[in-house]
Nucleic acid binder design. Sequence first.
DNA 1: TAGATTGTTAATCGATTAACAATC
DNA 2: TAGATTGTTAATCGATTAACAATC
Lengths: 206, 206
Amino acid sequence: MKASIPSATISRLPVYLRCLDEFTATSTTCSSDQLAAIAGVNPAQVRKDLSYLGSYGVRGVGYQVEDLKAQIARALGLTKEYPVAIVGAGNLGSALAKYDGFSAWGFEVVALLDIDPERVGLEIDDHPVEPLSALEQIVEERDVSIGIVATPAPAAQEVADRMAAAGVRSILNFAPTVLHVPDGVQVRRVDLSTELQILTFHLHNV
Amino acid sequence: MKASIPSATISRLPVYLRCLDEFTATSTTCSSDQLAAIAGVNPAQVRKDLSYLGSYGVRGVGYQVEDLKAQIARALGLTKEYPVAIVGAGNLGSALAKYDGFSAWGFEVVALLDIDPERVGLEIDDHPVEPLSALEQIVEERDVSIGIVATPAPAAQEVADRMAAAGVRSILNFAPTVLHVPDGVQVRRVDLSTELQILTFHLHNV
DNA sequence: TAGATTGTTAATCGATTAACAATC
DNA sequence: TAGATTGTTAATCGATTAACAATC
């Protein structure tokens, strides 16, 4: 059943989870109309999305905010801890290592690696920079489930290959390149230039 | 005509642009099959996407790599310069200010602002941190066309409101919140936790 | 009961892709 | 000409949303 949740719905669930926080202080329930307004989507879509989780709403009343948050978190698998390894301790990798929004949802940065000997040994926000050569060992020993690629583009594919070979099943790619990975490994791409270029398209075509 | 390019196509154009670089060294032409393999999409989709730009391919031969890059860049509006202002000089904002992949496509960081007096006056990679109070003046004087929100979530909406009021038409939001903006202003959201949570869904449901 | 809101259906809309005629 | 590959059609697929019966 879970596996049949449409991907578009899955990517909206984290947004709903965020938006529900805005009700926590003021109300114990919320309607699909209210949540839709905050999340910036159609109310029918909210109801349809939430219906994939089961029937947790009450007709005539709405959804119990805390209940719903728990159900969404459960559906997303946020009841577990996820050890994260970041490869690339440059500007972006370092900023990610310092980011404190991870822990709120059970993500823990357990390693920060770099290939540059000059960076290895540095301490970035309590994370020692370790050598890339230790990647496989670290993945194994610390049970890394998510790998973050924050290297320059030319290094990204090789890092992803090694992550996948070492058993990492999920990769978040910040390098401006398209990664090719084996079946069973999922990649999500976050590309600053791509986002900016999509914005310029619309700026340009008005 | 341009305005009728589907949004899914628009978000793939920057990817094609990236992938075409891989041909530059080895070949002057490429086929939709080759480009599709590198970009990780269906060959028919590549042809359909590119057909929105006009007919720049040659049957039996393929596309001229350099030609196609120029056409995509033109369609995306990358022939102009886009002044960018970053609000929030914390970990992420600073990393973005230092990012040198901007300039390759005509983006120039012309301001880095922060509300914290302790940060104002710092110099981050040649960008002086300026006070948030100067936002409106800076947008006007430096003709800022893209605003990047790299503040904590609670501050993001107010910053976006001020950007929009000052005439910024495009906003890239890194704060973990959904921004509400007037018609005519476009927002794209980049949310680390959302990406990680989408990954955990699949990790969890295997 | 009357009012409100869900859960779900069915219609609509848009995106993807197989297939192939056009043509270099 | 024969082989290759585009551009485009039409079929398929999936996502969105209006509408409303169900029901609290």
